[in-house]
């Protein structure tokens, strides 16, 4: 069977599913000043697991919106205007849904797969680790 390290090169999904892989990728993104994209990606996964009947869930949705989408952060810049509007409206109407960040997460993931992930696989951080 493939080692965890070999799987990192197969897909972003494998890399982020491995503790060491996610940690190393995070270090790389910190250096590239775009670690927010990864934190947002994990926040979307965490949000999807939350209980919609828990009052904390609305607060977390608001926190994600405020931290990553409302401002001019790197995440906000990579999202389509319609995606941001949809999330803004959902929060305004307090219509919280487990899938409300799915589209935004997909957009961020695609950008990561095309750019940061490819750069990571040729970075010195990765090569030194290997």
């Amino acid at each position: 069977p493939d080692s965890p390290l070999a799987r990192w090169t197969k897909s972003l999904h494998f890399l982020l599913g491995d503790q060491d892989g996610a940690h190393l990728f995070r270090t790389f993104l910190e250096r590239e000043k775009c670690v927010d994209t990864l934190d947002f990606w994990f926040a979307c996964n965490g949000f999807r697991q939350m209980d919609l009947n828990d009052t904390k869930t609305l607060r977390v949705a608001k926190a994600i919106f405020k931290r990553y989408i409302e401002n001019n952060s790197i995440v906000a810049k990579q999202l389509k205007p319609a995606t941001k509007t949809y999330i803004r409206d959902s929060i305004k109407k307090q219509q919280i849904d487990s899938a409300m960040f799915d589209q935004a997460q997909t957009e961020i993931q695609s950008t990561m797969e095309e750019n940061a992930y490819q750069m990571f696989l040729t970075s010195d951080i990765y090569l030194e680790y290997v």
Binding site: D20, G21, F42, A43, G46, F47, V60, A63, K66
Partner: peptide
């Protein structure tokens, strides 16, 4: 009560991969 930042941090941490 947790602050929004704390809640967000917990949400992110909960989704991170655990030890192999």
């Amino acid at each position: 009560m947790d602050s929004e930042d704390d809640l967000l941090q917990k949400c992110i941490t909960s989704a991170m991969p655990k030890q192999r």
